[in-house]
Amino acid sequence: MDELIKILTEMHPEIDFFNHNELIEQCILDSFDIVALVAEINDVFDVRIPPLEIIPENFNSAAALYELIIKLRGE
């Protein structure tokens, strides 16, 4: 989780990613951020997020995104 928070904080240092859960609804993460995240997660966690998982629910909070990474790792 700490590694994911580090990636997110590098993108938006002003956001508290531990507590924010409306990252998409509040337009904090835009489509450029999302694809950068997908690539970075693939690089750091060796997990490929398929396009069908690129939905607001999975990117609205760091916790949801981390849960997705864990799920994909298990598959």
Binding site: I34, V35, A39, D43, I54
Partner: peptide, 23 residues
Amino acid sequence: FKDYLFYPISASRPMLRFFKWSK
């Protein structure tokens, strides 16, 4: 275009490989 083209291209294996190479 975002959901059916931009995300699939960006998250495709060749593009992820390109990301690593480019970095």
